[in-house]
């Protein structure tokens, strides 16, 4: 397909491409999806600020578990991947396919690093005694962050497909740029959601001596 294909594409009533519109609609829906999961987690944090009891029966705090340095690092990596994604989209619009490939490869690698950090984090937490079965905290934490991880994994797969597709020569012109842009929308969204999760699930636990939920801790535990 060449650029002339664009001219043949029937104009839409709003001027927004169908694919892009559908992606926006999907993201609206996904907002509600993550919103529900994050609310579930926060509600339970408020109810049970004391964290969880590990296999030996010790009361453990969520701060004992977190390695905020590692998570900050993976958050930074994900942010930078969004930056590369923006570069990839702009390269595609200018028809610079080589630059597109370079940038998208960067996004893929950064995405994989993020996923690697998450796998490491999950195993680490598991060994410290937080499981999906032994507490409500475990259930909400793993399901929320796991769902986000799945979103990242799907994004990585999608970008890998686009990367290889670009070698067939069929990814070009206006439609090709649009395909990449839509993938980019998804990627940025997943990134923004992570920023929210990082704030609501990780950072707030460090406000005050017992985290933002600490005021609800029973006196004995304090």
């Amino acid at each position: 397909m060449s650029d002339t294909a664009a001219a043949h594409e029937a104009p839409t009533s709003t001027g927004i491409d169908h694919k892009k519109l559908i992606m926006w609609l999907f993201l609206a829906s996904d907002c509600m999806f993550f919103g529900t999961l994050i609310s579930t987690h926060l509600l339970y944090r408020k109810l049970f600020p004391a964290g969880f009891t590990d296999a030996e029966g010790h009361q453990r705090f969520i701060q004992d578990l977190f390695s905020i340095e590692l998570t900050s690092f993976s958050t930074f990596i994900l942010l930078m991947s969004s930056f590369l994604m923006a570069l990839a989209v702009s390269a595609m619009h200018k028809g610079q396919i080589k630059s597109f490939r370079r940038n998208v490869l960067g996004v893929i690698i950064f995405g994989l690093i993020f996923l690697g950090c998450q796998v490491f984090e999950f195993t680490h937490f598991y060994h410290k005694g937080l499981t999906i079965q032994n507490s409500v905290l475990g259930s909400t934490f793993y399901v929320l962050t796991g769902t986000h991880g799945t979103h990242v994994a799907i994004g990585v797969l999608w970008l890998i497909l686009l990367y290889f597709y670009s070698f067939t020569g069929k990814l070009g012109g206006h439609m090709g740029a649009l395909d990449v842009e839509v993938a980019g929308l998804y990627w940025h969204f997943v990134d923004i959601v992570w920023i929210i999760i990082f704030t609501a699930v990780y950072l707030v636990e460090y406000l005050g001596p017992y985290g933002i939920w600490g005021s609800g801790l029973p006196a004995v535990v304090k």
Binding site: Y44, L47, Q133, N134, S135, V143
Partner: peptide, 17 residues
Amino acid sequence: FDRSFGANFFNPSAGGQ
């Protein structure tokens, strides 16, 4: 997750609501 993997979202005995 509650039913298949033993999570506690709605399991009252573990604090689920």
